[in-house]
Simulated assay, not measured.
Amino acid sequence: MKWIVLGIKKFSMQQATNNNDHLNDLGDLLLEVGTLLMSAGANTNRIRVTMKRIAQSYHNQAEFLITHRAIMLTIYDEKGKTFFNQVKQTYAQVPDFTMVSGISRLSWHIVEEQLPMAEVRKEIERLKSKPKYPRWVVLTAVAFACSSFCRLAGGDPLEMGAVFFAAITGLFLRQELTKKSFNPYFSVFLAAFLSTIISGSLGYFGLYEHDNITLVTSILYLIPGIPLINSISDFLDGYSLNGLVRAVNGFVISFAIASGLLIALLIYNFV
C-alpha cells in the first residue's frame, strides 16, 4: 500500500511539473508574439485578440496589460489559479507588416490544426529570420514614391529629380543615424533639414517653377502615418493610454519634421 501511495504522489508531482513547464513555455510564447506584434506596428486590439486566441487554443485563460513599451501577462487555469505572471519589454518600433500578417495567420493555424508549441516556435523564428528588402531597394522605392507625389502635384521632371535625390539622401542619413542609436526625433529633424536643403537648392537659383511642391514632397517619407493611424484605432477600441502615447509620438515626429523644414527655409531666406 505504501508503494502505491508513493507511486501516486510521484506521478502527481511529475504531472504538475510537466504542466508548469507547459505553462511557462506558453507564457514565453505569448510574450514573444505580443512584443513582436507591438514592435512591428500592430494596434493594441490586434495584439490582445491574437494573444488571447493562442492562449485559448491551448486551453488556458490569459489576461494582459499592453503598453507601448512592455507587456504584462498572467495565465490562469480553469479554476482561476495563477500559473504564470511575467513582464516583457517590447523591441524597437520598426514597422513590419509581413511579421504582423504572418503571426496572424499562424494564430489561426494554431486554432485549426492544434499545432504543438515546438512547431509554433520554429515558425516564429522563420518569420524573424525572413530576409528584408535590400537597402538600395528601400531607398530607391521611397525616393520614387516621393518624386511620384511631386509629379501628381504638378511638378516637372527637373523638380521630380531634385525630390528623388533629396528623399534618398535624407532617408540614407536617417538610417545611418538609427544604426548609431541616435535619438529618433533628432534623426527625423536632421533628415527633414537635409532633404529640404537639397530640394530647395536649385529653387533658390530660380530653376524651379513650383518651389513649394518640391519642398513638401521631398519629406513625405518622414510622415508618421502608422503611429497616428494606430493612435486613432486604439482610441476607438478603448485603449486610451496607448492611443495617447502613439498620438504624442506621432505629433513629436511631426514637430521634428516641421522644425527641420522651418530652419532650412530660414537659411534660404537669410542667404
Rank of each mutant, 00 (worst) to 15 (best):
L177N: 00
T214S: 14
D211I: 14
N24F: 11
Q114R: 15
L262H: 10
L222D: 03
F11L: 15
V138R: 05
Q61P: 13
S129R: 07
N183K: 07
K122G: 10
Y91G: 10
F205G: 13
Q61I: 15
A162M: 13
A143E: 05
S231G: 02
L262C: 09
V87F: 10
T67Y: 10
S199P: 09
G170R: 06
Y91K: 15
F186I: 07
N45V: 04
V33P: 02
R126Q: 09
T140R: 01
K128P: 08
Q15F: 09
T169Y: 06
T35F: 06
F251G: 03
P184W: 05
K180M: 03
A16T: 10
Q86H: 14
I124P: 01
S218C: 07
Q175C: 00
A145W: 08
R46Q: 11
L152Y: 14
Q114H: 14
A153C: 08
T44R: 00
S231F: 00
F205E: 04
H68Y: 14
I198M: 11
G200A: 07
D234M: 02
A167H: 08
T169H: 04
L202K: 04
A143C: 02
G27Y: 09
P131L: 07
V49Q: 12
S187H: 04
S12F: 04
L115F: 07
V33R: 10
I232R: 01
G154R: 08
Y58V: 03
F255C: 11
D96R: 03
S199N: 11
L244I: 06
T217K: 03
